[in-house]
Nucleic acid binder design. Structure first.
Length: 272
DNA sequence: CTGGGGACGGGGCCC
DNA sequence: GGGGCCCCGTCCCCA
């Protein structure tokens, strides 16, 4: 039995963020994930991938765990950067499990990205923030995110009135009102097929994402990522008020909200 | 109050 | 332009 439901009202003030909405939706086809060519097996295990389902969760032998040694998380906002560099230089271990290295540095997209970069393909960069994109079309979409909400280009969701300056973001949001993908077990419905896919794991108990360090498995990749951080001895998020440090940004946020800073007028920015 | 984990929406990117 | 997929961040619950 799931402990919580998306339909629960939001509790009190949050630092920021969209909050949760509650999906209820009709059935729809659940698209199977397809493992893109070049995917690294140990890092993307596959929610709902046929091969995996057959095998169930088979955690690979724990590799020499990760060395606690990833203090080179220089930027807490982007803990993967140095890993990526090492990986692509061939210095990071490649294993069959979700080791710290493997988990943080590799995913299909980053590999594809790096290959295209090796090929020297031209990147289109955003003049405002410097982010680069493979195509001018992708850059054009991205530029929309820099528009002001006051912009004439801003559009509102016809259902809830929420305003968006980015049309792809609006399109995505509109989908959240169209809950086509319904769980056959509990009836909960989702706007996107992969959300249902993830939800189904709460019924099946399938946990494709395993930690190579302790063997614990997770149904959600994001949760494994957070779990991996709990293995780290390094706490990169520091409270500017009391200087306590935390392994996860969410812990710091929670601390700021509950302990050092009370009330919306305070901000407890993550330092490091 | 902290740490850990389940769940899921938004944004980004590729095809 | 749309679909599919993934990461990130957040909300919430519980020990």
């Amino acid at each position: 039995v799931p402990r919580r439901r998306g339909s629960e009202p939001l509790r009190g003030l949050r630092l920021h963020g969209p909050g949760r909405r509650s999906p209820r939706q009709p059935p729809g086809p659940v698209t199977r994930g397809v493992v893109p060519a070049g995917y690294i097996p140990h890092c993307l295990a596959p929610a709902g991938y046929a091969a995996d389902k057959k095998q169930g969760l088979a955690l690979p032998p724990a590799e020499p765990a990760y060395a606690p040694a990833h203090e080179e998380y220089g930027d807490p906002e982007s803990p993967r950067s140095s890993f990526s560099a090492r990986y692509f230089r061939g210095e990071a271990a490649v294993t069959d499990s979700y080791s710290m290295d493997a988990f943080f540095i590799t995913d299909g997209r980053s590999r594809r990205r790096s290959e295209s970069q090796r090929r020297g393909s031209h990147r289109h960069s955003c003049p405002e923030c410097g982010k680069t994109y493979a195509t001018s079309s992708n850059l054009s979409r991205h530029k929309q995110t820099h528009r002001s909400l006051d912009s004439k280009m801003a559009r509102k969701c016809p259902t809830c009135g929420k305003a968006y300056v980015s049309m792809p973001a609006l399109a995505m949001h509109v989908l959240t009102h169209n809950l086509k993908h319904k769980c056959d077990v509990c009836g909960k419905a989702f706007s996107r097929p992969w959300l249902l896919q993830g939800h189904m794991r709460s019924h099946t108990g399938e946990k494709p994402f395993g930690c190579a360090h302790c063997g614990k498995a997770f149904a959600d990749r994001s949760n494994l990522r957070a779990h991996m951080q709990t293995h780290s001895a390094f706490k990169h998020y520091k409270c500017k008020q009391c200087e306590k440090t935390f392994a996860l940004k969410s812990y710091l946020n929670k601390h700021c909200e509950a302990a050092c800073f009370r009330g919306p007028e305070h901000s407890c920015a993550a330092g490091n």
